[in-house]
């Protein structure tokens, strides 16, 4: 995040002077703001990942951040800063981490983690919600990260844990990691009906299975995200999405650094979940 802030500071200096800098100009300028071991090429690559592009303008090319990234950041920061100003704000973070013997506790990849979970028996995902006010953690370990499980967790656990009118922060790519079970004509009529109702598609139990399946087929699946945000919003909470480029602003990173350090200090040579009381105990310790 320090690098990102230094880049923005540097861009601001150039723009104020009416200059459209090159990647290398920004690299040289950033080196004056913070020390960096990145080469010019690595730095340029980092900037591209952060969303910087050359935009063709009547006066030439202009290096700038993609406006959609700037705007997303604005809306996120505006909401979170306003919320923090309130007396005892109820802010929660929903996060998920891969739990395996590597003990890296990484976030699941953007695409479905289904294949990863199926390929090995000792890997699971810890799906949890943490409050930055009460420091409470509520979570589940699961081997099946699908919409049904996530929505059940939201309904059975999260809604109980949340204080009224809470703000829930979720990573932008959270929904992409959750797999969706595709229905086939071999599924039962009840399953198809259940799916249609869960996704608010008008239908009745009097309809024949063929009609219901036709409705399922015609429903554009890409628009159907995991509907956890609509469940939360229906209960008066607000869900805000943390842009991918702002992941460092998620305090859950501190929690996992704490756990990593704790595990390392207990058995620095060969840390294993089994010989250090397990992640659950460490989380409880928090």
């Amino acid at each position: 995040m320090e690098l990102q802030i230094a880049i923005l500071k540097s861009m601001n200096i150039f723009y104020r002077e009416g200059i459209s800098p090159s990647f290398n100009d920004v690299y040289e300028s950033v080196k004056d703001i913070i020390p960096t071991e990145l080469t010019s090429a690595q730095f340029e690559n980092n900037m591209i990942v952060l969303g910087y592009i050359y935009k063709k303008m009547p006066f030439g090319r202009l290096l700038m951040e993609k406006p959609e990234i700037t705007f997303q950041r604005f809306f996120y920061l505006q909401t979170i800063i306003e919320t923090r100003k309130k007396n005892k704000p109820n802010i929660y973070y929903i996060d998920q981490r891969i739990i395996d013997n590597s003990l890296r506790f990484q976030k699941p990849p953007s695409q479905s983690v289904e294949a990863l979970l199926q390929s090995t028996n000792d890997t699971s995902v810890f799906l949890y919600i943490v409050s930055t006010t009460t420091r409470q953690v509520n979570g589940i370990f699961t081997n099946v990260l699908d919409h049904a499980n996530v929505n059940k967790w939201i309904n059975d656990v999260v809604l109980d844990a949340l204080k009224p009118k809470s703000v829930v922060v979720v990573d932008s790519n959270f929904g992409h990691t959750i797999s969706r079970k595709e229905l086939t004509m071999y599924d039962t009529k009840a399953d198809i009906l259940k799916w249609l109702k869960e996704n608010s598609i008008p239908c009745t139990s009097n309809m024949r299975k063929a009609e219901l399946f036709e409705l399922y087929k015609k429903t554009p699946k890409k628009d159907l995200n995991c509907n956890f945000s609509s469940i939360l919003e229906a209960h008066g909470h607000r869900v805000i999405y943390l842009p991918t480029t702002l992941e460092d602003l998620n305090p859950t990173n501190f929690l996992w650094n704490f756990i990593r350090n704790k595990l390392q200090s207990q058995d620095p040579d060969k840390p294993r979940l089994t010989n250090c009381g397990g992640v659950t105990n460490l989380i409880c310790e928090l």
């Binding site: 995040m1 802030i5 923005l8 500071k9 861009m11 601001n12 723009y15 104020r16 009416g18 200059i19 459209s20 303008m57 006066f59 202009l62 700038m64 700037t70 950041r73 604005f74 920061l77 505006q78 979170i80 800063i81 923090r84 930055t132 702002l246 460092d248 602003l249 305090p251 501190f254």
Partner: peptide, 29 residues
Amino acid sequence: GLYKIKQMEKELFKLDAEIEESLDNVLRM
């Protein structure tokens, strides 16, 4: 930790407002 995050949120927000203005200057050229 959380204090640092709050500071960074405010710094980014302020910086974005400044850039919005300075970038407009370049775009008007």
